[in-house]
Design a protein around this nucleic acid. Structure first.
Lengths: 219, 219
DNA sequence: GACAGATTAGAACGCTTGTTCTAATTAATA
DNA sequence: TATTAATTAGAACAAGCGTTCTAATCTGTC
């Protein structure tokens, strides 16, 4: 009766992880179930049995990847409630980069996101709402605090907050894009120290940028 | 004998423009020749006759789009040779955004690039080298001057220059991504004033970021 | 060992893809 | 007008896709 044991070490997990790689590399439409099953050493009927659809498999992959990624690299990396917005931004950027640029299992989560961005499958909208939205909200909250802190008299409008947030995310996402383009094999993963070094540069870049924008708002 | 007249107003041009839209929206693999031909009011054999392949059509589209985009929005927007690097960066960012966010024909060029980034077709590497490389080189030259200008004693290494350049491009590219994700219909184009306003914010953000990075380099 | 349910293997089906092929049509020249 | 080449239309083809189906196998319980 303990059929759930299969989840941890059975074909179900193997399928999810193989699918994650393929989906991340090729996008939803271009990925084929046969390729996924071949990598997972499973039969094509297994995906139908466990997930009903290719679409069901994709949703499962996305949820699994998101759970793993945020467990390993949370947005608030052991930060106390009294942390300054600067610290929170630094940690946010570092986590986002570690999640996407590192090798191994949680690596293809961000690649999945970026693949979805330029070739929307439609499934994304339903599934990713729950994973993207709160992340986005957290970042905007950080940016709002930073803007207010650096210009207490001016009022930061939503448009300004949104653009600053997008600038931060854009810098991080583009790291995946560019490296995926340069290096053909996806498995070429970077050392954590390198990733942290990059995130530090992006952090300083962004902090200065936000402060500049803050002092631009007519007070 | 004047068979080249067909290029300007014949099915060849219609095919290219229809293909541009479809490729930009769906990526190379997901786009179908039948859909392209339907939009262009052409027969499926026309693509084979004029371009030999789906791949040939793609290459033609890319070259055409790149030519149109850089003609309409050059990287150096009527700037004299004595322009400051700050001015050149502002113009660079503005052109990049106008090229990608505006509606109409040159709009899908950048979308093509971003689609290619996350779902590389392999054709890209050959074709886009000539369009991406010089753009990238120009931006790195601007960044190098800015870094040196803001810290005459420190020497800016290549890694720093590259990351700053990537940050600038990442912010611009992400504007396409995010808006493509939010708004489903691709034809939802923005007004030029809005685009310029965004580019101005990104410029101030980036200038401040680069200056911060410059003063970080150990002198 | 025997039975029942869970799981897998692999062929089969219907559909869509890119490409090719032949006949029809158009355009230009003499 | 006759002839020749350029272009188009639309059916046809092989390959690949996601999915479904049935028989085989495994797994746990009596």
């Amino acid at each position: 009766m303990k059929t759930q044991t299969a989840w941890d070490d059975g074909t179900k997990k193997r399928l999810i992880e193989a699918a994650g790689e393929v989906f991340a590399q090729s996008g939803y439409r271009s990925a084929t179930v046969r390729e996924i099953c071949k990598r997972a050493n499973a039969s094509v009927s297994a995906v139908n049995y466990h997930f009903k659809d290719k679409e069901g498999l994709y949703s499962a992959v996305f949820e699994y990847a998101h759970r793993l990624a945020t467990e390993k690299y949370p947005h608030d990396w052991g930060l106390g409630p009294g942390a300054t917005p600067e610290e929170r931004l630094r940690v946010f950027i570092r986590s986002l980069l570690l999640r996407g640029l590192g090798g191994g299992f949680p690596a293809w989560h961000e690649k999945l996101v970026t693949a979805e961005i330029s070739d929307p499958s439609g499934i994304f909208s339903k599934v990713a709402e729950s994973s993207i939205r709160p992340m986005h909200g957290l970042l905007e909250e950080i940016v709002r605090e930073l803007l207010k802190k650096n210009n207490p008299f001016g009022e930061a409008d939503d448009e300004t907050i949104r653009i600053c947030s997008m600038n931060v995310v854009g810098q991080c996402i583009f790291q995946h894009h560019a490296r995926q383009l340069m290096v053909f094999e996806i498995s070429k993963n970077m050392k954590p120290e390198e990733i942290v070094a990059i995130s530090e540069k992006i952090f300083r870049f962004s902090i200065a940028g936000i402060r500049a924008i803050a002092s631009d708002t007519h007070c």
